[in-house]
Structures are given as structure tokens and as C-alpha cells.
Nucleic acid binder design. Structure first.
Length: 915
RNA sequence: AGGCGGAUAGCUCAGUUGGGAGAGCGCUGCUUUUACAAGGCAGAGGUCACAGGUUCGAUCCCUGUUCCGCCUACCA
């Protein structure tokens, strides 16, 4: 419990450290299926164990924490389930680097010891991000922290794999897959990033077999793959080539001849020469074309993307260049092939050409289409129900614009390659009987890894088989591949809740409520969770998917370490406070727009935190006597007005949270507190508070205390630390703001009358202050004001505010009827019917005031003419709705009323200037 | 190539049944007054990208154009 003596500026560091510890120790975030209330559950998108908190996490987690704290305060049975994922390739890379530094390698220590090393690494470094999350104030149930390689989650993975296999939805196949020659593993389609590069388009002469003096011109961007061509395709309706169909060409640099086939799908007559080489083992389109024409697949490369001697042999490459080509990289091979074609007069042209290339999303190495046996998920049957639940709105995607993005991708989805040739991850639960597969299981790689040919018969089971059901053999080889990390992530919403066990948690919290994520993993993760959730739980994994923006730098560039434009959230939290960072991110989370984050914005909200802090300091000066909260009896204008505004703010914030409009919710909080509560309310009640004998004193102090306390609860999900810190110093019940009820609107707080009065008051004070500035009167100077209004009711209203007008206007106030206002030595300012006259004293420059009046008259005239023009239009009067016409008429009348006053005031000024 | 999004004040962005253009930051002037100079007060600043259309009326709805961004993709 902190003392009410608050420092002059808010120092977040000590406060944050203290409260994160208390919250955690007291178990306020602990969830239980036995708690009361409607369940509200979010599972965190598991950050990867090699990562540390970046600003994207900060945004993602801040939003979730806002939702979670808000729902918790609303009395829901809240569970925010944290965890991390094992990030197969990334983590393996990190540990391999460590080994390399020690002069060792994964291969040298072997699979078992390598995996031990990874676990060791995970224990030492894998929780970095978790402690950083706690620093951000995340109110996760940390007791339930999960990891994708945990025993329970691994059990779920086995269960899912085996059941999908039984259902025929997992199969082994030999197909072209994306292969990273650096990571030495397969990648799924979406783990490949496409990028346009400047390449070259080579046009090559393929001599006709029956007449080698004639050529077919073939264009390609990858000449080195021509060695593996098994056909050339032309369009069936292309007059240029129709006579060549079913003829053969001699494949340059080889001793082979290959057929010319017709293919309307592959060939675009407009592009290049209209003739396309088909290389089924090195291009995804060619693979399909090869199937259509029953072509042989010649795989040229080894796993390092070097030309393999075996491949060169199979391709019947000329002996003369085979030695030169063997074990060269793609780049080198290209040079050799092009040089060789050129020297033989077969290179017809080389043109610059822009083309897309695929890169590994983890290491940015150029990915090769590679022919190899892999495990796949047959995705179509899983995708169909996952499309339906989004179409019917059982899963809502917010903002809705992304829905089509999702549906489009899902409708065109391709089978998912789930096997990875790495060691860190869930090893595939498939075994091969040594006896049955004796003939084909002979080869092993240098590192001891078995190569499992496609023909091998796997036994898929949750536990290793003891004897072969076929031959009774008892020796087995475990499939060396591991599963794609996203395979286990796809089970996250139910595996973390205990599935396949039917735990109370699973029953209570599944389906979860909301998933908060960035667009970048909509396909990687969200789509797959929906498919797996429907398949294994028979229900959607979550009701709402909120997709937030990407955080970019001030210039709108993606943040990256190499560009040096990364904003480190921990540094920002250190500098400006965690609450400021959270509030900033929330305030910028407008739907459908990326966030350009600049430090100045965070500084601005640091100032907001400080403003709240100082308002609390102010309150403490006068709340010393109040030890417990009591219902306010304040019936004064400032109290009723601010309570009405607070009520409205509660309504807006709640509504915007329901709509996931964090930007608008924060704006409402900011505007209310700074520009209504501090600028007006606190200023208005100062005279009452400062007069210890004031009859309204007690009631005013209670209202001050109550409104501040309610505001802090309203603010808490957004700025958890400062709200807790201040709340603790105010009279309160309960031990923490974390579990207090979220404010709800109250009909008797709504007070339109005092809001209307305030509007009038604000205009009046505004004119008084403007007048002071126009006449260069010092702020402290006692000035005499004459306030009038055309509407007698408004004068009565203003009459009740005389004390307040005197206080904030800093001068004497005379409320008079319009006809009675003094006409000499007075500057009159007018706005919306309010007239404020200021006595002109001393030697002041009136030209500034005159300029303002002249300008205002011109504006008034312009607007009057616009309105008058509309009202004179027969079309407008006959077709516009009556209330719009009335409104126009009212505004025109008010303008001409103001104008009369303005010109009269102008004349007075001119008279004074002339004198 | 296709799809989606964006273009509003110097900057970052709000702005829904179409009817007087807003905020924050920055800027200018005044101001150290007892919650806060990380403050207070006042103020300047905008053909709502461009061209058409629908409408009595368009920042908003429709069509087209330009520019920027993102995603998807098999132009070899």
C-alpha cells in the first residue's frame, strides 16, 4: 500500500515492478473452471522461444490484455492462456550456431545429444520473452504456461497425426516441394517468401531431330535446368508450331532427344517464343505438365542444390562438360551452361527480365523446387467446413475485409507438406519394419540418418510397434523427419486446455472467445486452427478473430534489424513507461491501416500519464479527510456535469471495446480526462475546495473522489499500472483494482441540462479569454465583462453560474439584457448568440480585435450566403427533408442575429480607433 | 497478372442510414498562477488525390484515372 504523498512527476519504473510482482504473487490472474461467470478465454499466439519481445508482440499482447482485463472486471470467468512454440527450424539454427562456435556440429554429436542441447538452450534462454511479457503487465494465467513440445501437447500431436492418417488425410508422397538448401529441409508453400528480382530471359535454340539445321526457339530464366528437360511444349492452336507437334528435338548439351508436345495450359502464346521447355523435376508447373504428358522426371540437384553426378548421368549430359558441371551451385551451373550454349551457337538471345524468386522465410536462402518423399495433409476435406464456418459467421473475422482474403485462400488451398528434415520437433510417429523393407532401406546419409524411399511401408502408431504385423519382425526404423511447427500450433486452442483428455478446462473454455493476431499468420496459423478445431473438437476454436495492423517505423518501412529502424519496446517502456506504450499502441490500432510508430507519440501519452498523476496529486490535497467512499450528494453544476460526461465516456468506451475499436476507446478516455475533467472540472471546483468553510465542500470532495475512482477503473485495462497505483491511494474497497467491477452507465448520472449549461458556459469563458488576449491584458488583470445573450433563458442559465464565470474569467461580470449593454469603450465579441463585452482601458492596440471582427463577419456572410442559396433553391425546399430545412433556417437566423451584433461591435471599434 | 487497402491540416490519423470538416502531435503568440512547463490560455493552418456520374445536396454512394502499400500468383 503506497502513501498518498505522490511525487511531482510520475515515475513508472518502480511502480510497474512493484505491481507486476504483487499481481503475479496474489494470483489475481489465475483462472479456474469453478470460478463464476460466463467464460471468456483467449489463447495467446505463442511467441517462438528464440524470440524476444518486439513491438509487434507489444501491440498484439496489449490488445489482448485490454480485452482480458476488461472482461475480468466485467465479472466474466477469464482465462488468458500463455505459452511459447518450439520453432523447429529457427531454434535448430540457433543451437547449431552455438555448436559451430564450439567446433562441433549437429552431426558430430548425434541426434539424441543434439536434442538434449536444444532443451538445455530452451531452459536457459527460452523464457526470455515470458519475463518480458510480465514486464508489459500481461495478465496471463502464468501457472498455465504451455510449450508446444510439452508432454501433453506432444500427446495431442500424436493423437492428431494418427487419427488423420487413419482417416486417409495424411499420406506420404513424392512430389516437388520447396526445399531450403541451407536449412536442408522441406518448407510448406507459405513458408516461402516471393520477391521480384532482375534476372535474364535466355532464348535457346533446340535443333529439330529430323533436321538439325532447323531450330525451335525456347525461352527460359533458368537455363541450367534445361539439362533436365523431358519435353518442349507448344500451344495446340499456334500456327507457327502446329506442324512440329509430336516431332522431337535434340536437347542441347545432352545426347537425348525429347518430344514436342501440345499443351494449352502451360503455354502462353504471347510470351517469349511461344515454346516452353518442360522440366518436371524442377518447376511446379512443369511437374503438372509432366503428369499430363506422362513424362520422365530427371532430378538434377542434390540436397545442397548442386548438380549431382547421378543426375547428370541420368540426364545424359555430354561427357565433355559433365566433369565441369558436377557439384556446382545453381549460379555456377547457369554460367557454364550459358557459356557452353553460346560457344555452340545455340544461345539466340539474352534479355533482361523481371521475375519472382522464392526465399526461405527463416534464412532468406533461395528455395529450390526439389523432388523428394514427404508427408502431406490432404487439406481439401478439412478446408471445406473451415470455409463454411467463416461464411456463416460462426467465426467472425474483424475487420471484415480480411474475410474474403481468408476465403479466397482456403478455396484454392493446396495439400500441406508437414515433414521437415530437421531434428528439433515432434518426430513423425511412423516406423518401418527392417525385415519387410530390407531391400530398399539400405542407404543412410553420412550423419546416420536413414533415407526412407517412397516405397517403404510405414506403420503409423502413437507408440513404437513391438512386432511387425506383416512379418513379425521386431526391428524398426523410426521415420527421421519431424513435423512442421505449425502442425502443433494448429492444435493450440484445445491442446493447451488438456485435449485429448476431457479436462474441466476444455469443457469450460472451448471454444475460446477471441483470437488476436496479425495478418501475417492468418494462413499459417488461424486457418489451420479452424480446420483442426472443427475436425477434432467438432466446434470452432474461437468466435472472433481480431486482426490487427503491422507496426512500421515513422517512414512506413517494415522494422528490421538490418535497416536499424527497430523500436525496442523494452527501451520505450524504460523511457516512457509501460502504460504509455500500451496506450499509444491501442490508440493507433485503427482497423485496416498499418501503424507508423514514432517515439513522439509515446511521449505524448507519457504526458497523459503524468497528467493523470498530477490530477490525483491535486485530489489528494483535498481528499485527506475522506477515508471511505460515500455516495456523493453533490448537486452543483460542475459535479453533475462531469458525472454526466463520465457516464457518457463509460458508454463510449464500453461500446468501442465491444466493437474492437481500441483507437476510439482511448481517444474517449484521453479527451474526457484531459479536456473535460482537468481543463474544466478541476478548475471549476477549486474555489469550493480551497475554501475550507464552504458549505458545498464535503459534497464536492466526495464527487471528486467518486469520479476519479470510477475513471481509474475505466482506464485500468489500458493503463494497468498507474490506475492501480493511484486507486490504492484513494478510498476503496477490495485489495486490487484488477478485480473491481468495470464501470457501467447509470441513468441518473446522465444530465442533459447541465451539459447544455456547460456548452453556454464554455462559449462565454472562451470569449472572455479571447478578449483578454486581443487586448493584450495580462492574465491576472481584473477586467470588467458585460455578458449578454439574446435568449433570456440563456441569461437566466448564465446567472446561476456567476461565481464560476468570475472564477475562470478572472474579472467582474455584469449580466445584462442585450439592450442594456454599454456602447462606449467596450470591445464586443460574439459567438452563437453569446455576447461578451470587455471594457477597453489604457493604451491598447485595437487593430487585432478589429481584424478578428472583420474576418468573422466575412465568414458569417459566406456561410449565410451558402445557406440562403440553398433555401432559395426550389429543388432543395421541395425535396430535402423538413428537419433539414428547418435546421438551415435556424442556422441562417442565428447567423444574421450574430452578424448584427458583430457589425455593431465593429462600428464601435472603428469609432474608438478614429477618436 | 489478379485481389484487397489507402490518398482528409506541416506530420500521424478519426470521420456510417449523404445535409455546418475533427483530434493528437507539431507550429505561432502570451504565460512560471499554490496538481501538472511532461503544464495553462489564445491562435494560424484543409479545392477532403484527379475526372466524371447519381442526388435538391457528395469527404461519404457509383464509374474511371493517377500515385502508394500489402497479399496472392504458374508468364517459361
Amino acid at each position: 500500500m503506497s502513501t498518498p504523498q505522490l511525487e511531482k512527476t510520475y515515475d513508472p519504473k518502480a511502480v510497474e515492478a512493484r505491481w507486476s510482482q504483487v499481481w503475479d504473487q496474489q494470483g489475481y490472474f489465475h483462472a479456474s473452471p469453478t470460478h463464476p461467470g460466463q467464460p471468456y478465454c483467449i489463447v495467446i499466439p505463442p511467441p517462438n522461444i528464440t524470440g524476444s519481445l518486439h513491438v509487434g508482440h507489444a501491440l498484439n499482447h496489449s490488445i489482448q490484455d485490454i480485452l482480458i482485463r476488461w472482461r475480468r472486471m466485467q465479472g466474466r470467468n477469464v482465462l488468458w492462456l500463455p505459452g511459447t512454440d518450439h520453432a523447429g527450424i529457427a531454434t535448430q539454427n540457433v543451437v547449431e550456431k552455438q555448436l559451430m562456435a564450439e567446433g562441433a556440429s549437429r552431426e558430430s554429436i548425434g541426434r539424441e545429444r543434439f536434442i538434449e542441447r536444444v532443451w538445455q538452450w530452451k531452459t536457459t534462454y527460452g523464457n526470455t520473452i515470458v519475463s518480458q511479457q510480465k514486464q508489459l503487465g500481461e495478465s496471463c494465467d502464468w501457472d498455465r504456461l504451455r510449450f508446444t513440445m510439452d508432454e501433453g501437447l506432444s500427446k495431442a500431436v500424436l493423437e492428431v497425426f494418427v487419427r488423420l492418417h487413419e482417416d486417409g488425410l495424411i499420406y506420404r508422397g513424392e512430389r516437388l516441394i520447396n526445399w531450403c538448401p541451407r536449412c536442408l529441409t522441406a518448407l510448406s508453400d507459405i513458408e516461402v517468401e516471393h520477391e521480384d528480382v532482375k534476372g535474364k530471359l535466355y532464348t535457346i535454340r533446340y535443333p529439330l531431330a529430323k533436321d538439325p539445321t532447323q531450330y525451335l526457339l525456347v525461352a527460359t530464366t533458368r537455363p541450367e535446368t534445361m539439362l533436365g528437360d523431358t519435353a518442349v511444349a507448344v500451344h495446340p492452336e499456334d500456327e507457327r508450331y502446329r506442324h512440329l507437334i509430336d516431332e522431337e528435338v535434340r536437347l542441347p548439351l545432352t545426347t537425348r532427344t525429347i518430344p514436342i508436345v501440345k499443351d494449352a495450359i502451360l503455354v502462353d502464346r504471347e510470351f517469349g517464343t511461344g515454346a516452353v521447355k518442360i522440366t518436371p523435376a524442377h518447376d511446379f508447373n512443369d511437374e503438372k505438365a509432366g503428369e499430363r504428358h506422362h513424362l520422365r522426371r530427371i532430378s538434377l540437384f542434390n540436397e545442397h542444390a548442386q548438380l549431382s553426378p547421378l543426375g547428370l548421368q541420368e540426364a545424359q549430359v555430354d561427357d565433355a562438360i559433365r566433369g565441369e558441371l558436377a557439384l556446382t551451385s545453381v549460379q555456377d551451373a547457369r554460367g557454364i551452361v550459358v557459356k557452353e550454349l553460346d560457344s555452340r551457337g545455340l544461345l539466340a538471345a539474352t534479355d533482361p527480365h523481371k521475375m519472382p524468386i522464392g526465399k526461405c522465410y527463416r534464412c532468406k536462402t533461395v528455395v529450390e523446387p526439389f523432388l523428394s518423399p514427404q508427408w502431406f495433409v490432404k487439406i481439401q476435406p478439412l478446408a471445406e467446413p473451415a470455409i463454411e464456418v467463416v461464411e456463416t459467421g460462426q467465426v467472425r473475422i474483424i475487420p471484415e475485409g480480411w474475410k474474403n482474403n481468408y476465403l479466397g485462400w482456403m478455396r484454392d488451398i493446396k495439400d500441406w507438406c508437414i515433414s521437415r528434415q530437421i531434428w528439433w520437433g515432434h518426430q513423425i510417429p511412423a516406423w518401418y519394419c527392417k525385415g519387410c523393407n530390407a531391400d530398399i532401406l539400405l542407404s543412410t546419409k553420412p550423419d546416420g540418418t536413414w533415407v526412407i524411399p517412397l516405397e517403404a511401408k510405414p506403420i503409423v502408431a502413437k507408440t513404437p510397434p513391438t512386432h511387425c504385423p506383416n512379418c513379425g519382425g521386431q526391428e524398426f526404423i523410426h521415420d527421421p523427419d519431424v513435423l512442421d511447427t505449425w502442425f502443433s500450433s494448429a492444435l493450440w486452442p484445445f491442446s493447451t486446455l488438456g485435449w485429448p483428455e476431457q479436462t474441466p478446462e476444455l469443457k469450460k473454455y472451448y471454444p475460446t472467445s477471441t483470437l488476436v493476431t496479425g495478418l501475417d499468420i492468418l494462413f499459417f496459423w488461424v486457418a489451420r486452427m479452424i480446420m483442426m478445431g472443427l475436425k477434432f473438437m467438432g466446434d470452432v476454436p474461437f468466435r472472433d478473430v481480431y486482426i490487427h495492423a503491422l507496426v512500421r517505423d515513422v517512414e512506413g518501412q517494415k522494422m528490421s534489424k538490418s535497416k536499424g529502424n527497430v523500436i525496442d519496446p523494452l527501451h520505450v517502456m524504460e523511457q516512457f513507461g509501460t502504460d504509455a506504450l500500451r496506450f499509444t499502441l491501442a490508440s493507433m490500432a485503427s482497423p485496416g491501416r498499418d501503424i507508423k510508430l514514432a517515439e513522439e507519440r509515446i511521449e505524448g501519452y507519457r504526458n497523459f500519464a503524468n497528467k493523470i498523476w498530477n490530477a490525483a496529486r491535486f485530489a489528494h490535497i483535498y481528499l485527506a479527510g475522506i477515508k471511505e467512499s460515500m455516495p456523493p450528494t453533490d448537486r452543483s453544476f460542475p459535479g453533475l456535469w462531469i458525472r454526466s460526461r463520465l457516464n457518457d465516456t463509460i458508454q463510449v468506451v464500453t461500446m468501442e471495446l465491444e466493437a474492437y475499436r481500441f483507437d476510439r476507446a482511448t481517444n474517449a478516455l484521453y479527451h474526457f480526462f484531459w479536456h473535460e475533467y482537468c481543463d474544466w472540472y478541476l478548475e471549476l471546483i477549486k474555489p469550493v475546495l480551497q475554501d475550507t468553510m464552504h458549505p458545498q465542500g464535503s459534497a464536492t470532495r466526495r464527487m471528486l473522489q467518486e469520479t476519479l475512482e470510477v475513471f481509474l477503473r475505466l482506464l485500468h485495462p489500458f493503463m494497468p499500472f498507474i490506475s492501480e497505483e493511484i486507486w490504492q491511494t484513494l478510498p476503496h474497497t477490495g485489495e486490487t483494482i484488477v478485480t473491481q467491477p468495470y464501470p457501467v452507465t447509470q441513468t441518473d448520472w446522465h444530465d442533459p441540462s447541465s451539459e447544455e449549461t456547460f456548452h453556454l458556459f464554455e462559449q462565454c469563458i472562451g470569449l472572455m479569454r479571447t478578449a483578454r488576449v486581443l487586448l493584450n491584458y495580462p492574465p491576472g488583470k481584473e477586467v470588467r465583462f458585460f455578458v449578454t445573450h439574446e435568449d433570456p433563458a440563456a441569461i437566466v442559465r448564465l446567472g446561476t453560474l456567476e461565481q464560476e464565470l468570475v472564477h475562470l474569467g478572472r474579472g467582474q461580470i455584469s449580466l445584462t439584457h442585450v439592450s442594456q449593454r454599454p456602447m462606449s469603450n467596450v470591445l464586443g465579441l460574439i459567438r452563437d448568440g453569446v455576447t461578451v463585452g470587455v471594457s477597453v482601458e489604457g493604451d491598447v492596440d485595437l487593430n487585432k480585435a478589429l481584424d478578428r471582427l472583420v474576418k468573422q463577419i466575412a465568414e458569417t456572410d459566406r456561410e449565410s450566403q451558402r445557406l440562403d442559396g440553398k433555401l432559395k433553391s426550389a429543388d432543395f425546399v421541395s425535396k430535402a427533408p423538413p428537419e433539414v430545412i428547418t435546421d438551415h433556417q435556424d442556422r441562417l437566423r442565428a447567423l444574421s442575429r450574430d452578424r448584427a451584433m458583430l457589425t455593431s461591435s465593429e462600428q464601435q471599434l472603428r469609432a474608438m480607433l478614429g477618436a
